[in-house]
């Protein structure tokens, strides 16, 4: 097996595995850049996966046809944003510990979605959706030799959308007044307040954006990968997105790189058996690679990862 065919095997799987991570980690980026830790990304993905499947089923039955999953993605985005308000109200207005509130959000998401699944479908999992989003070739670009094979043929449209989102988020965070305000709130809320920025309003917007993107991330995973929803559909992808956010040093382009790398590790762990050089490496090393690398990155062995200065603290007006 030569190197090209190995890459043919791995790269599309890596991009595919990275897509939900990219969406969710970009969401976490908004929230953490505004100084709100979001351990609840996992729960937001669960909520998104549930809404993605339920609304796809609903729109299918209403006769939306192939558009159903796309409309469901929008619904998952809205529901994720609304659901994230739990985290926002608790941690911003009521000054709850952001990490505790995030943990509670994860509990609540799993409890609520499985409860609703049982109430609606009478068992622990939903029906399977029939209108899925499938791999497609991108016009013209897929004809480019080699590279076209890797990046533009047989790719999920959602992956392309996630790449566009990376650029949009990068532009918004670093090139617009909104992004400047967002970052100032996360770095030094008192200074931001003095300059007339409404600190808590910015934090609310940021947390809701993280809910919206986390919702999309979960829905993309459910619609493209599992095609139904149960309590075990989202098992750790949210935490891996959090890892990608930190490994990517709270920068959209870094997040893209980290997510692709984690996706790469995941796809390696799945397809290692077919690659002679890796067939004898125990799968466990590839499974734990993303987590170990994140720890090493935090410890400064792989480039120091430093978060926003005022992260994790509730802002009280007039306090020092």
């Amino acid at each position: 097996m030569d190197i090209i065919s190995i890459l043919n095997l791995i790269i599309p799987t890596a991009i595919f595995a990275a897509t939900p991570l990219i969406f969710t980690a970009l969401g976490g980026l908004f929230s953490e850049r505004a100084g709100v830790v979001n351990i609840g990304l996992e729960g937001l993905m669960v909520m998104g996966a549930f809404s993605g499947i339920v609304f796809t089923l609903l729109f299918e039955s209403l006769g939306f046809g192939a558009a159903s999953p796309w409309v469901a993605l929008v619904m998952a985005m809205l529901i994720g944003a609304i659901f994230s308000l739990f985290h926002a109200v608790a941690s911003i207005t009521f000054r709850a510990d952001q990490i505790v509130s995030g943990v509670a959000l994860n509990f609540l998401a799993v409890g609520l979605t499985v409860f609703l699944t049982r109430e609606i479908f009478g068992r622990g999992q939903t029906d399977y959706i029939s209108e899925r989003i499938f791999r497609e070739n991108i016009l013209f670009l897929s004809d480019i030799p080699v590279v076209g094979n890797w990046f533009f043929s047989n790719i999920y449209p959602t992956s392309i959308v996630s790449l566009v989102f990376v650029l949009v988020v990068w532009y918004v965070v670093f090139k617009t007044p909104f992004g400047l305000r967002l970052r100032s709130v996360g770095e030094h809320p008192m200074a931001a307040d003095t300059m007339g920025i409404k600190v808590n309003r910015m934090k609310y917007i940021a947390v809701m954006l993280s809910g919206a993107l986390g919702g999309i991330g979960g829905a993309v995973y459910a619609i493209t990968t599992s095609a139904n929803f149960s309590g075990g559909t989202i098992a750790g992808q949210g935490f891996m997105a959090l890892a990608a956010l930190i490994f990517g040093k709270w920068n959209p382009l870094g997040v893209l790189g980290a997510a692709l790398f984690f996706g790469f590790a995941q796809s390696l762990s799945l397809s290692a058996q077919q690659i002679p050089a890796l067939a004898n490496v125990p799968q466990v090393y590839l499974l734990i690679a993303p987590y170990v690398l994140t720890i090493l990155a935090l410890a400064g062995f792989v480039g120091k990862a430093e978060g926003p200065k005022a992260i994790g603290k509730a802002y009280e007006k007039g306090s020092r």
């Binding site: 009521f94 505790v100 609520l112 499985v114 409860f115």
Partner: peptide
């Protein structure tokens, strides 16, 4: 559905954490 207790537990955590309220 037994998951109701998970919801109750999650809400209790929210309320304890929001002791400010």
């Amino acid at each position: 559905a037994p998951e109701l207790v998970e919801i109750v537990i999650a809400l209790i955590i929210f309320f304890v954490a929001s002791s400010y309220l």
